[in-house]
Computed example of a mutant assay.
Amino acid sequence: MTPRERPGGRPDGFPAATPGDTAAGPAPHTRTGSPGRHRVRAWAELLRLPALFTVPGDALAGTAASGARPTSRTLLAIASSLCLYEAGMALNDWADRDVDAVERPHRPLPSGRIRPTAALTAAGALTGAGLALAARAGRPALAVAAPLAATVWAYDLGLKRTPAGPLAMGTARSLDLLLGAAATTGRTREALPSAALLGTHTLAVTTVSRQEAQGGPHLPPLAALATTTLLTRLVTRRPGTPADGRRHATPRARTGLRPARWPDPEPGVLLTTALGAVYAATTARPYFHATLNPSPPLTQRAVGAGIRATIPLQATLAARSRGTATALLITALAPLGARFAKKVSVT
């Protein structure tokens, strides 16, 4: 799934990092309206609801990678992912409440709008719900959801301040994709390549996010830019295509028995290429700017772009597995997430 980090590391659930409040996203909370509305908004900020739109694509891409179509078990996997993601969000703010009191005093916990005990209780309840939903989807799904939940808690409670933080985030995203495959088909082997690609993207974004509050060296955004370029090449190549990307003639074509004529590109191939281009375009410019000037505002924009790019990457992974309808469904989540992000910050 994708987190948000600061210098020391900080996630939003288990996705990659998110942009800072001052450079990207809505303005800090202001008190207008009824007390009940304040409370709802505070929880929406704590759980970073707009970021939820990056979660369903994990399970859907995993299902497509396993060669299956979404079923009711896939829906259970998505629901489990959403719960575990939100558990990570709440636990993150609980673990970082002292740091937030200095760096982001407007956040729900340091501002007093939500009590720390309530956030911790929510994290525990959401984790339990996520595991219960995975169990309903079957033992294979629970076998993936359990280490996913453990990774989320380990990250929030300690790993994010260590060099292992980005790797833990990447692992969490990979496991979330495998959760969809395990729930739908009972197996994960076919989905491992897609999980590795998505996890690598998350690792790169999380590495950049570790310097979003104070800025830092040029290398992390440059490495993320290079990683995006490599992932775009890999993800737009059909599984089984030679590593050099060239098509090789069949034996009959080479012997002259029939001309070497290649069929026109399939719609799925065109869709994969188009979505891969969207993925690359979403991150290329912000990463390049952050490389030239790794200041907090530009780094935060780069991190935000990395988060947004998660959806087109998921869609590309689904399309390359011949899940055209699934890819289009994932793509439809992007404008919804952008719309809600205008009302509630994802950071």
Rank of each mutant, 00 (worst) to 15 (best):
L178P: 10
L198R: 00
S194C: 04
S174K: 03
T227Y: 09
T171K: 00
G199P: 14
L177T: 03
G216F: 12
P166C: 03
P221N: 03
T200V: 13
L192T: 11
T162C: 06
A204T: 02
G170R: 05
P193C: 11
L197I: 04
T171Q: 02
L222V: 13
L197R: 06
R187A: 14
S209D: 15
S209K: 10
G180M: 04
L198M: 12
G199L: 04
A182M: 11
P217W: 07
T200R: 04
L177N: 02
L175R: 01
L179W: 10
L178C: 08
A195V: 07
H201I: 03
L203D: 02
L179R: 05
A183T: 00
E212P: 12
A204F: 09
L179N: 05
T207S: 12
E190S: 13
L197Q: 01
L225M: 06
R210A: 10
A213R: 14
L167E: 00
A164P: 13
L222P: 14
V205C: 08
L177S: 04
R161H: 10
Q211F: 14
L175Y: 05
T188V: 15
H201F: 06
P193W: 05
R187W: 04
G180E: 10
V208G: 14
L178Y: 06
D176M: 00
A196C: 10
S209W: 12
A191L: 09
S209C: 12
P221E: 08
A191T: 07
T185H: 09
A226N: 10
L178D: 02
Q211V: 05
A164G: 03
L175K: 06
R187T: 13
L225Y: 09
D176W: 02
A183M: 00
P220I: 06
G170L: 05
L225E: 04
T202S: 15
A204G: 07
L197H: 09
P220V: 05
G170V: 02
L167F: 07
A195I: 11
L222M: 14
A164Y: 06
A172E: 08
L177R: 07
L219F: 13
A226M: 12
T202Q: 10
T202M: 04
G199E: 04
